[in-house]
């Protein structure tokens, strides 16, 4: 893989996935859809970390460890986020972000 596929290709793939996730997070009305976009963005960051580790410092562990921390933080984020989605649905009976506008005044 390292001898055949240039690092830039992998980084371009990650950039594409990040932008797809960004579009999903910004455009979806459904809060769960937004969270799914954020998950895609976190995954693309992980691809970057692993690619830089494998291509530039394969004997060290810093890139892998950082990727594992990102996964742990993402898991915590999605657990709290989905609990909030359920709490919001209970209070407002909707999970469309544009209908939850109590603070709009």
């Amino acid at each position: 893989m390292v001898g055949s596929v240039p690092l830039v290709w992998v980084l371009t793939l990650a950039a594409g996935l990040f932008c797809i996730g960004l579009f999903g997070a910004l455009s979806r009305r459904n809060i769960v859809g937004m969270l799914m976009g954020i998950e895609l963005m976190l995954n693309s960051v992980n691809i970057n970390l692993v690619a830089f580790w494998r291509y530039l410092q394969p004997t060290g562990t810093a890139g892998l460890i950082f990727a594992i921390f990102t996964i742990a933080v993402a898991a915590a984020e999605v657990a709290v986020g989905l609990a909030m989605v359920i709490a919001i649905y209970r209070a407002r009976l909707t999970i469309n972000a544009d209908e939850i506008d109590t603070l709009k005044g």
């Binding site: 950039a15 797809i20 960004l22 455009s27 459904n30």
Partner: peptide, 18 residues
């Protein structure tokens, strides 16, 4: 609707970042 009315702004932002 599953996306916001101004979803094309999000598309522009994503494409611009790319």
């Amino acid at each position: 609707r599953v996306v916001f009315e101004r979803w094309w702004v999000a598309l522009l932002i994503a494409l611009g970042l790319f």
